[in-house]
Design a protein around this nucleic acid. Sequence first.
DNA 1: TTTCCATTTCGGAATCATTCCAGTTTGGTT
DNA 2: AACCAAACTGGAATGATTCCGAAATGGAAA
Lengths: 144, 144
Amino acid sequence: MEINIKEDLIGQLKEKGLKLTPQRLAIIDVLVENCDRHPGVTLIFTEARKKAKRVSLSTVYATLKEFSENGLIKELEFDRMENRYDVDLSDHINLICKRCGTIADYDIPAPLEPKDIARKSGFVVTDTRMELHGYCRDCLKRPD
Amino acid sequence: MEINIKEDLIGQLKEKGLKLTPQRLAIIDVLVENCDRHPGVTLIFTEARKKAKRVSLSTVYATLKEFSENGLIKELEFDRMENRYDVDLSDHINLICKRCGTIADYDIPAPLEPKDIARKSGFVVTDTRMELHGYCRDCLKRPD
DNA sequence: TTTCCATTTCGGAATCATTCCAGTTTGGTT
DNA sequence: AACCAAACTGGAATGATTCCGAAATGGAAA
């Protein structure tokens, strides 16, 4: 499964005419290995360093930007908090824990028809983002 | 109508034991006058200066934070973009134009039951945020 | 395989919204 | 009128992100 995601990402990379560098390969590996963790730049940077000899923070930023602009990954932007990256491109709802910062996916398809919205408001939807902030199961258990 | 919102805000301020200062009064005025515009800090700061003799940027930040923490207003956080503030506390969907940055409200109640989510995922929802990014009617008309 | 150049990488400086800080002022209660 | 916790100030600090010019390199073409 992870192999498929990885091969798919590399395939898309070439399709888009982007070069396959050791840095990018390392970043892809980290993304795939942590695909259910919505990793941030710091984690990706740290882990990528273990895989490729030379990777700079600038490169990680540039690469993640490039990838998300080309639709390889999804960028979840946050305020006063590192952006998070998701290999899962499907529309889903993010459950974001206020306490530990964990981001879980909630897979109920959003019952919002872009067509209805366009018809009623004239607004053309290109990206959907649904966040539910609150507390995850684990944090609720833990005292304090 | 606007009068009611203003009086209501001032009422809540006193209820919460917060002091009514000329700076806060000016900020409330700006919020109410621009209630359908989702104003950001810069706009609020600039306009508030016209109303009160002395207002500092720090105060605007502190005040907006205080207000939203006390539930007087809603803070919409953005990445790489000023936060926006909303006097309308009801759950609604924000239509955010990628081009002009306008934020419009879309008033269809979200058909997501917090109870269902809690039951299925153990996640307790405290805040809902739904954003649909795309292009507004006006920007679609305009060429280039 | 060698050449070549657009792309990528690098690290350090710059950006910018926001927060922090320490000192001063002030609303509103006693 | 006195008092003090809360609020205000402006300048410095923060931290994620972007920008920059120079150096390195993937991979297509020769």
